[in-house]
């Protein structure tokens, strides 16, 4: 029991966050418990990764890159802003036209297919079942 509770406090021991009494208890236990000693080494080396990452090297051209991006944004470039805007507008126009066309076609066709709905429903269900689920999911992405 003592072993477990000591082991669970090792990370706080490493960070020097234990009271003097707790610290002394950990050190007494470490003297006699090889498993806790080994884990402490493992833990310290693991946490050392953070210290090593902090010593990262310089960031060359960081501001140069950033400055180039700023220019890109600040550029009035009416043309490119227009095309960016025009894309969704054009797309929704085409979509609206297609939907409208489809509705028109549908309402014209309905007069010919009074007896068909039952059959086509079954076909649709079959189609759905044979469609692989992953392509169904992907098509929704």
């Amino acid at each position: 029991m003592k072993h477990d509770s000591i082991r669970k406090s090792l990370i706080f021991y490493l960070d020097n966050e234990l009271s003097e009494n707790e610290k002394a208890a950990v050190e007494r236990h470490l003297e006699e418990c090889a498993d806790c000693r080994n884990f402490l080494v493992f833990l310290r080396k693991g946490m050392q990764v953070i210290e090593d990452e902090k010593k990262s090297e310089e960031l060359p051209f960081f501001y140069t890159r950033l400055s180039a991006k700023l220019e890109e944004i600040a550029e009035p470039g009416g043309q490119s802003q227009w095309s960016r805007l025009a894309h969704p507008i054009l797309f929704s126009l085409i979509l609206a036209l297609a939907v409208y066309g489809g509705l028109q076609l549908g309402s014209n066709a309905s007069s010919f297919s009074v007896k068909q709905p039952a059959v086509s429903n079954i076909q649709m269900l079959d189609d759905f079942e044979t469609e692989p689920i992953e392509s169904f999911l992907l098509s929704n992405l």
């Binding site: 902090k54 950033l66 400055s67 700023l70």
Partner: peptide
């Protein structure tokens, strides 16, 4: 822009570290 550059140079390392 000069003020922006000073700000970036002051904080770039800390921002990269945090993101990292």
């Amino acid at each position: 822009r000069k003020a922006f550059q000073v700000l970036v140079e002051t904080y770039q390392r800390m921002v990269v570290n945090t993101c990292m």
